[in-house]
């Protein structure tokens, strides 16, 4: 008879195997001539455009608060002029990609998980499959690609607004011209800061879309499973984001960026 530990490891192995198979089905369906272009655009609108206000406000406030918080300490060292550069590098390299990805995980992954989960419960996915359609192509590929495209775009938007927020923060205690502020920002950051961070967000987007789709598509029958799918999509994709970030930091350090 199997003990609890064996069952636990068996479950992990089965789940990992299913995730790999699901990923394989996704990649096999990406490069097909009958790509669902309209659905992809609809998903970009639903997933990306509708997240814009949340992401914009978050980005602005993060930049604003970070500047206000760091100003007293920097003042002590007489390094206030370094704030634009410091905030810009922090926002671009780490804070915006990770915070926006975690926000997107909460909004997108849970939405995708709940939507596909309820489609599964109401047999809509089965109906698509038995009618000869391709639910992976229509539901999964479009959503994952939309996340891959929209998360980096939203991150760039948040970074831009974060810098604006930082500029506003600098003007709370003193007056700095926009030209001087952004001159300091753009002389402070390099492509070596921007590109690895941008590439990282593509992987974040994939993690959010993939986990949301996997959890929703493979949810059990019953309404309770819809909630479970949405919840576990957020938890798992957030974990993935942290792990990808840790790997990306190691890689960029090793490559000298």
């Amino acid at each position: 008879m199997e003990n609890t530990e064996d069952i636990f490891y068996k479950k992990i192995l089965v789940e990992s195997g299913n995730e790999v198979l699901f990923m394989f089905r996704f990649f096999r369906n990406i490069f097909r001539w009958d790509f669902e272009g309209n659905e992809f655009i609809r998903q970009c609108y639903m997933i990306g455009y509708r997240s814009f206000p949340l992401v914009a406000i978050t980005g602005f406030i993060v930049g604003f608060v970070m500047t206000l918080q760091s100003e007293p300490t920097m003042k002590e060292f007489g390094a206030v002029s370094f704030i634009p550069r410091m905030v810009a590098i922090s926002l671009v390299r780490e804070i915006c990609p990770v915070i926006i990805a975690l926000i997107c995980a909460g909004k997108m992954a849970s939405g995708i998980g709940a939507e596909l989960g309820s489609m599964k419960v109401t047999e809509q996915i089965d109906a698509m499959e038995v009618s000869g359609g391709n639910p992976i192509q229509y539901l999964v590929v479009t959503r994952i690609l939309a996340c891959i495209c929209m998360v980096p775009i939203l991150t760039v938007v948040a970074e831009g607004l974060g810098l604006l927020g930082s500029y506003a923060g600098m003007n709370v205690s003193g007056k700095v011209s926009a030209v001087l502020y952004f001159h300091k920002v753009f002389t402070g950051i390099t492509f070596g800061d921007l590109i690895p961070a941008f590439i990282k967000t593509i992987f974040f987007g994939f993690a959010i879309g993939f986990v949301g789709c996997y959890k929703g598509y493979n949810s059990d029958r019953g309404t309770e499973s819809v909630g479970i799918a949405a919840n576990s999509a957020v938890v798992s994709s957030s974990l993935w984001i942290i792990v990808i970030d840790a790997i990306a930091v190691q890689l960029t350090s090793a490559l000298g960026y």
């Binding site: 489609m119 109401t122 047999e123 809509q124 089965d126 109906a127 698509m128 038995v130 009618s131």
Partner: peptide
């Protein structure tokens, strides 16, 4: 053809 119990219309 398969008619599901709920109709399974894409909502």
């Amino acid at each position: 053809g398969f008619l599901f119990q709920s109709g399974a219309l894409y909502d």
